[in-house]
Simulated scan of single mutants.
Amino acid sequence: MTFRLLMLASAALALTACETDNVWVDDGIAATPVPAAFETDPMTGRGDRADDPALWVHPADASKSLILGTNKDEGLHVYDLSGQEVQFLDVGRVNNVDVRQDLAAASNDEFNAISLFTIDADSLAVTHEGDFPTGKEEPYGICMGLVGGAMYIIPTYKDGSIQVWVADNAGFSLQREVQVGQYGQLQLEGCVVDDEAGTIFIGEEEHGIWKLDLADSESAPEIVDTIAAANGLVADVEGLSLWAGPDGAGYLVASAQAADRYVVYDRAVPHAPRGVFSIAASTDGSVDAVSHTDGLDASSAALPGFPRGVLIVQDDANPVTEVDQNFKVVDWAAIEAALDLAE
């Protein structure tokens, strides 16, 4: 082999290595910028700490709603709707968090467990109720569901599997384990349950988005979208959430992390892609733009100043990468306008 061919071979190997490390090359897909509305207090310090938010909506007074945010080095932060931190729970390395009614669950990879929290509507206090072991190393992502009256907690794993835990008189029991990841490095993280449809959507970081019917114990994963389909997804496919409208309407939102953008799909089958957006600085410049989002949460609940709901996203750089990370909040009405989404 000539020296030139050796150099070309080395370059090809280097490119392959870069692709494995998720170095993104511009694919020409335009992302419409949407301004941030406000942000939470930072997790002061250096390192990749902030990961996943979840919105708890107060059952009687939306102004008292809370944002829960994981610190994957330390525990769970709690913020009010001004973005001010009101509580911190030192419960170990929790990676993802989700909420149903007055219960929150977080994946705790320090103890290979699911951490449970209750939220008191009167005091607005979040209480750590304890942890239960998953019997499997390093629960990574997590999502909750309330399907047919049953409470579900579903952690995801780096080996491409999910566990389906269902509440019973003893607490939570493992109903089934499903191998979802099929391609690439198999790793799963982001997931979200459509309670009304009884379906879970799961992100395979190097491949795309899957869904699974929770009502059918024999169901197999079905593909929703792939990176290769070029609808806007790139590796890593990270946070997933639903903006749930009435009668099954609404949208699935996915973080395409390496491209600093988000892909929106119809909630309803066949989950058609509806557009791609990025999050820019606030219109007054007081909140910086968002990059490299990991976890996110969407809500259609009417909140003060946000009658169409919000999208909450993790921001890697605030504004410097891995320094004082926090969560940004976007008015869902601004996303609707940017992508011409009509309900």
Rank of each mutant, 00 (worst) to 15 (best):
E204N: 11
G190V: 11
D131R: 14
K136V: 12
M151L: 11
V164S: 12
M151W: 00
P133K: 14
A215F: 01
Y183F: 13
G149S: 08
F132P: 11
S107Y: 01
W210C: 12
S123Y: 06
T156N: 11
G184S: 13
I154P: 10
M144C: 03
E177G: 14
L103W: 03
G203D: 02
G130H: 07
D102S: 15
G135E: 13
I202N: 06
P133E: 12
E137W: 01
F201A: 13
G149E: 05
V192P: 05
L146A: 12
Y183S: 10
G145F: 03
G184C: 10
G181L: 08
S123V: 06
G160D: 11
A197W: 05
G190P: 12
D194F: 05
H207L: 03
L124D: 14
M151I: 04
E177Q: 15
S161C: 13
G141L: 04
D131S: 14
I114R: 09
W165Y: 13
A104C: 07
M144T: 06
I202S: 09
E206W: 02
F201R: 12
L212N: 11
K158E: 13
Q187F: 00
V193S: 07
M151Y: 00
E138K: 12
D213V: 09
I162L: 14
L116A: 06
L116F: 01
V147A: 04
G198K: 09
E205D: 07
Y152P: 09
D120N: 15
L212T: 10
L214W: 06
V180A: 13
Q187T: 15
P155L: 03
V126Y: 05
D195A: 04
E205W: 01
H207M: 02
I154A: 11
I142N: 03
I142Q: 04
I153K: 07
V178P: 07
I200W: 02
G184W: 04
D109V: 00
A197G: 14
S161L: 02
E189Y: 09
Q187E: 15
I119E: 04
Y140Q: 10
E138G: 00
T156W: 02
N108D: 15
V192C: 13
K136Y: 13
H207R: 10
G160S: 12
G184L: 08
L188E: 11
D159I: 08
D195I: 02
A170R: 14
K136Q: 15
G130E: 05
V126N: 08
E206Y: 02
I142V: 13
G130T: 09
Q163N: 13
G184V: 06
C143I: 00
W210T: 11
I202R: 06
I162E: 07
A150M: 04
E205G: 04
L116S: 07
K211P: 05
F117M: 06
A125S: 14
G135Y: 09
I209D: 04
V147C: 06
Y183I: 01
